[in-house]
Design a protein around this nucleic acid. Structure first.
Lengths: 340, 340
DNA sequence: TTGTAGGCGTTATCAA
DNA sequence: TTGATAACGCCTACAA
């Protein structure tokens, strides 16, 4: 065998028509359940369809005017992260419920990759895009939005473009978390979080600061450790704080990576330290010293964003919306106490 | 405004051609980087492309002979399950690396839904399908396979059809887990697992049995609890076993849901009990009484399956392959000891 | 270097 | 009830 043999290709409507001795239109009518086909004809055509294993080609179909791909694109930073996988599931289910398939792509927090993915998905003519932005400037989408592509941002707002967005109440959640620790009697509380360049991280720090401020406390810069992307870095940051001459009696962690790191750091210093973390996780109650978390409904986020996107695709022309999903404090363990 | 206004539609190649005063072919050449276009012409066309926001339409493109959708379909039981989300990520990355996009669909372990998804994806003309089967009969795929669609099954073998499959070494892993407990001195070990109808569950029970047998032990039916799908059921099953008059000194759990349930059950009875579970999970080392797990590389599974699928699409006609991903025992905690 | 013709698989429209 | 025709957006093959 030389060269690449073409894969056995599927029968086309024309082949079915020839085999059944009818025109393509008749086959089309049978395939699409059009009632205006005589019963015997329908039966004969259907038999040929079954025999040949014919399946309508949606690619050709969606080329026709008025039709679309009926696909949404989901661009996400990392599907394997529990939060995002929950969102991905919710999006897939909501999309399917409304008649859309879903193409997914991971950016791994890489801005260039994000843009490549947007390109690829637009070329594939998705009807809409759900983006968990890796950050940066999204003004390149302006021309696409003008061309009628619908876009909804998820978790973080876009840069330099006006579009729909579904966010978590990062500020309020962090403030509640801070107040919880203060309520437990803590007066010196450290902050462990990821880079301030990430929208959620910055908002959460601000919310945490607000909690202190409204309680008449301040957050010395020496107790702020921003920039830990992973568990290892977060642990180091937490240990650093806890080994200060005048260490905090509690920590606030800005996301689940940092919560785990803080937890490990606390364990490493072997001293009871209060802890509140943003993001809930399974098994949170099974760990040795359960801590309080700021939780939110990731499933609801995915569903809300998808519904909004599909509404847009189906003609909703209202001004860009900003949906904020509330957080709730899930109190677990003692969250430590301030004094001995 | 009455009726549904058509979304501002994208410019086509023809429009670009007209605006630039050239033929469509010239635009096509510019778009596809064909060198045989005079520099001034190219510049003029490119300017129009940018001005109009033109993007090639891959749907139209893939309709042409020789081209394909360059899409793979991933049908999975639940993307939000950590194991499957890791697989989904690996598949997406491997697919992209080889030039394919990915459409995903969740079955939620529903056989009918699985079949609907297969239909939808075939209609969309994906080049290949990765399926984590919910179970049942897949003979309906025979005609599709004959038509040239490539399919690789993941995690569980298909029913009644001969196709590529990537599996975990369920049997060997469970046997190793059993031997580990026996090595710790346990002689009466209970089994907590999901329905025997699920391939993996059945294989794991068999492997566990083999460990006992080769050690000269037997597994009384009274110590086997199959059928717990979720954590709550698994906990009940574990407690039941541990409250028997002659209770086991250790438990083997057939998957992560059952591991968590067993763990909770053990804690409920408040007595030290050995535990080994199939499936690793994050934070496994942070829980109060860490236990040994049978782990495997889910990422590798996804990658291997995707590579195999793409090989098939690209012409590999070797007989169906069966790839088995090995497991490894991750010993944690004491796994209990048998006697006082 | 540039352009023309034809067709990929489907369906809307109009005609028989 | 059935069919012929044209068109969706693009690209291969072949001219000019």
């Amino acid at each position: 065998m030389q060269g690449r043999r073409a894969a056995a290709s599927r029968p086309t409507m024309r082949e079915v028509a020839e085999a059944a001795g009818v025109s393509m239109m008749t086959v089309s009518r049978v395939v699409n359940g059009d009632a205006r086909v005589a019963q015997p004809t329908r039966a004969r055509v259907q038999a040929v369809i079954d025999a040949l294993g014919y399946r309508r080609n949606d690619i050709a179909r969606s080329l026709r005017p008025g039709h679309s791909s009926a696909l949404l694109g989901l661009i996400i930073t990392n599907v394997a992260n529990p939060f995002y996988s929950v969102i991905a599931l919710a999006v897939e289910q909501a999309a399917r419920k409304r008649g859309f398939g879903l193409i997914v792509g991971n950016t791994d927090e890489d801005i260039d990759r994000e843009r490549e993915l947007v390109d690829e998905l637009l070329i594939r003519r998705v009807d809409g895009l759900l983006i968990v932005p890796a950050g940066g400037d999204h003004s390149y989408l302006t021309v696409e939005l003008a061309a009628g592509v619908k876009v909804v941002f998820l978790g973080r707002p876009p840069g330099r473009v006006h579009a729909d967005v579904v966010l978590v109440d990062d500020y309020g959640g962090a403030r509640d978390g801070g107040l919880h620790l203060i309520g437990k009697g803590h007066r010196r509380i450290g902050f462990v979080g990821n880079q301030q360049g990430v929208y959620t991280a910055a908002r959460r720090l601000r919310g945490f600061r607000a909690a202190l401020k409204q309680s008449g406390l301040t957050l010395p810069e020496s107790l702020v450790r921003s920039g830990s992307q992973d568990v290892v870095a977060a642990q180091a940051a937490a240990e650093e704080l806890l080994r200060l001459p005048d260490p905090p009696t509690a920590l606030f962690a800005s996301n689940n990576r940092n919560s785990i790191g803080a937890l490990r750091g606390i364990r490493a210093v072997g001293r009871p330290v209060g802890l509140v973390g943003f993001d809930d996780f399974e098994l949170a109650d099974m760990i040795e010293d359960p801590f309080t978390v700021v939780a939110y409904d990731a499933e609801e986020m995915g569903r809300a964003a998808t519904d909004l996107l599909v509404d847009r695709i189906q003609g909703d022309r209202a001004p860009p919306r900003r949906i904020v999903v509330p957080t709730r404090l899930v109190a677990r363990g003692s969250s430590g106490t301030a004094g001995p």
